[in-house]
Design a protein around this nucleic acid. Structure first.
Lengths: 257, 257
DNA sequence: CTTGCACCTCCCGTTACGTGAGGTGATATG
DNA sequence: CATATCACCTCACGTAACGGGAGGTGCAAG
């Protein structure tokens, strides 16, 4: 009387909401092997197979791979190994979620920027995206090389302030691209550089900014791997020489050798 | 002078932190095609390729497929289409995150149960997991077939209460499995049934419970697709007849035909 | 007789690469 | 000068979890 009901693969598929192809596949990899009708070789599923499939679907929902599922169902110590693997699984899923959150956040910021700023230079936009992408590593780097206290005021800003800063970054970068090549003592250039320095000061605070000035070559390279410059090499070179000129003029730096 | 620097694939890979194989692949699918050294056929990357790769990596971070990235970089209207696809992309990622959150929540609940309850019958555990899996659909179904007000008290409970209910569900189900087959007028059975009804009442409230009693056959089947019984067919049959007996005895139901 | 149906078994396609296997030209070393 | 190493090249197979189609089989109805 037990397991009296048998289902053809079509009926079973409909009953369980699984595709026939999936059932074929589970059979193929040995995850759910129905027995066969002696003559025709057609698959015959029983009520026990319904339970097995429920389990498989449940595990899949929890994020396990079919390979893992098979290992777990083969294993004898179901409850014990489950407790263990659940912890591992939780870690893995939470890591994925962090990734997802970062991406969603970046999309939100980028969308907001595009809504407000109209058209944005591609290089600048992607330098921003890269910065969002590496935010976590940036935090760690600053914690290691600057200080742990410097982190929160740098990154944990309210949304609107974030947007304002992003816009400012775009505006300044566009200005640099516009003026690149001009004489370094052009008054417009000097004014831009002052705004640039002011903005940097506002973002980082004087303490952290000074700290950046004292970094070694190797450390600077590490940092440059984490952020992407929005400028071409030429723009970058021009910007550096202009900034040097500016700082010498202000007495913040001795003249170069 | 422009693009004076050229990189062999090895140098380029190191500079950008991308694997050689990945660069081969991007070349193969036409995503990043460096030019070749005339004699040897070796790939030569320029500084412009660095920018292109930055873009690709940025798009990947935002969750786009390489195919989508290629389409977008081919397209002329970069900014316009970006705005559009960003919205689509955001929707897609947020849906993924909902999935992830559901899975993480289910793992947390299951872990908590296993910590406290020790060993748990597999059928019961997976009937719970399935219930967590379909929670969203359950909400929608109840909103359609019962009422929108019934939802919040049913699902939006604090964590500890959730845990307590899960434990109660396990305990009652285990009791049913233990007593299955006993005479329906056995006093222990009758006591269990009373506890069962009481628990159901506590969870759903009398209004919703009554509503469930008035459901049509087709509607019940829909509901049974959303939840999984922890019982075998025999246990289920026994439970139904016992419950009928109990309700008749209490005068909640007329005798069967 | 043929059509249709439900089932069967291959087998190719998907994504974004990892990981070899086997070949070539240039340089460094015995 | 022979050889070992090096960086590069081009196939080409493997991955996870199926989707989809081709081509074949047995059985019931028109």
């Amino acid at each position: 009387m037990k397991d009296a009901r048998q289902y053809s693969i079509g009926d079973f598929a409909e009953k369980t909401g699984t595709s026939i192809r999936t059932l074929h596949y589970y059979d193929e990899i040995g995850l759910l092997k129905p027995h066969r009708q002696p003559g025709s070789g057609h698959r015959l599923y029983t009520d026990r197979d319904v339970l097995t499939l429920q389990r498989i679907i449940g595990f899949k929902f929890l994020g396990y791979s079919l390979e893992q599922i098979r290992e777990m169902t083969d294993e004898a110590d179901v409850e014990g190994s489950l407790k263990q693997t659940l912890r591992v699984q939780q870690k893995a899923l939470e890591e994925k979620r962090e990734q997802l959150d970062a991406a969603i956040g970046a999309i939100r910021r980028t969308s907001a920027l595009l809504e407000e700023s109209g058209t944005v230079d591609g290089s600048i936009l992607f330098s921003l995206v890269k910065s969002m992408q590496t935010e976590k590593e940036q935090r760690l780097w600053i914690e290691r090389n600057v200080s742990a206290e410097a982190i929160a005021p740098l990154f944990d800003k309210p949304d609107e302030e974030h947007l304002a800063l992003d816009k400012q970054y775009i505006e300044l970068s566009e200005a640099v691209k516009r003026l690149a090549g001009r004489a370094v003592d052009d008054p417009e250039v000097q004014e831009l550089l002052e705004r640039y320095l002011q903005a940097s000061l506002n973002v980082t605070g004087p303490e952290t900014l000074k700290h950046f000035g004292r970094l070694e070559q190797a450390e600077l390279e590490e940092w440059n791997d984490l952020v992407a410059s929005p400028f071409t090499e030429e723009e970058e070179a021009w910007f550096n020489s202009a900034m040097e000129h500016y700082m010498v003029r202000c007495g913040m730096l001795g003249p170069p050798v």
